[in-house]
Amino acid sequence: MDSGVAAEHNRHSWNAAVEAHASHRPGLQHYLRTGGLTVFPEELALLGEMTGRSLLHLFCNTGHESLSFNRLGATVTGVDLSDAAIAYARSLAEATGLQATFVQADVYAYLSAAAHAGLSFDRIYCGYGAICWLRDLATFASGVAAILAPEGRFVLVEFHPTSNMFDPEWRLRYNYPHGGELLTLDGVGDYVGAAGGGLSPGGFAEGVRDFVNPHQCHLYRWGIGEIVSAFAAAGLRIRRLQEFFYVNGEKPFARMRLDDQRRYYPPDDVPKIPLMYGLVAE
């Protein structure tokens, strides 16, 4: 499939999902305005000190994480393909008094334009379902490397490819992701509603029920070796690769247990497998 057509399908699919996702977070504005953070300890530990740092948040979606980074002292730019998500992010910034520059753009176009303009960032972050939207890992990694400031840090917190081998009932069903294999789905789903509060720290509401996305989306399946190698080949030094046996916020499998930190753990009868990982490259 032509990459431009796929990207346009994805934009429409994300646009359709924004309202459904937001319907489960009625308290988000108040939560952020009164000091709440929607980011998890894992990404904060990997990002390190943010006070006075410039931070680029790629695949920022509706911006609540970007605004959380601003609360922690960073000057933030958020980029996302979805114009509906960016519009929501801008309204969220206005309502909370937090600040970020939100840009609607294809990530490849943004990285190229930023390099051409001579921009650089102390921190570049993306995570939680970002890598699967990349049709070309090498170009993405090179684009990140081109605008990462000297002594800067790229951080990725992502769902582990191993977890994509299982169906929702923990049955081994699929090949290990590799090679950027194209996967076409019915559309971006209502994962915020399915998380039942894991992704709604300001309070969960039932909101939209039985959401059906009218627009297909197209994902790309990459293995962890390919991901790490792409950033190494782009000239970045891999400083850390950490695996986690739980999932932050989302509930991808049945019978998962939610703790008071919004982490979902497998049931006791399921052997431990890595469900999430964090990568730091400098």
Rank of each mutant, 00 (worst) to 15 (best):
I147H: 00
L72S: 08
G27V: 09
A45M: 09
T184H: 04
I147A: 08
E158W: 05
Y31K: 08
L148G: 02
S163P: 03
A230W: 05
H21P: 02
V188M: 13
A149D: 05
G225P: 00
I227P: 06
T51A: 14
G73S: 09
C217K: 12
E151T: 11
L67M: 04
A85G: 15
L182W: 11
F211K: 08
G73Y: 10
L183C: 08
S68E: 08
Y264I: 03
D83Y: 01
P177K: 04
L119H: 14
P161V: 03
L58E: 00
L219M: 03
H215S: 08
A6E: 13
I238L: 15
H21S: 01
G143M: 00
A85V: 04
M165E: 13
A93Q: 05
A230I: 04
R257H: 14
S229R: 12
G36C: 11
P150H: 10
D269Q: 07
Y128G: 04
G143D: 02
A149Y: 01
G207T: 10
A114P: 09
H160L: 03
T162I: 15
D136N: 13
P252K: 00
L98R: 13
A89G: 03
L119Y: 10
A230M: 02
Y108R: 10
G63C: 09
G129T: 02
S66Y: 06
D259S: 11
T51D: 12
T101V: 14
A254M: 12
N213Q: 04
W14S: 01
I238Y: 02
C217L: 11
G152F: 05
L275W: 06
P168D: 14
K272S: 14
A6L: 12
Y108E: 02
A141Y: 07
D190W: 08
G203H: 12
L199P: 01
Q99I: 11
R209Y: 04
A74K: 01
P274E: 08
F231S: 05
P150V: 10
D186T: 13
V192E: 01
G97R: 11
A114S: 15
W222I: 02
T101M: 07
P161K: 04
P161Q: 05
L156K: 01
M50K: 01
T77S: 12
F102R: 06
P214Y: 07
A254D: 14
L148M: 01
H30E: 15
R33V: 07
M256D: 04
V18K: 03
R135D: 08
A20Y: 01
V155G: 02
L98G: 03
N175G: 15
F121M: 11
A89F: 03
A105V: 10
E243T: 11
P150R: 10
T75N: 12
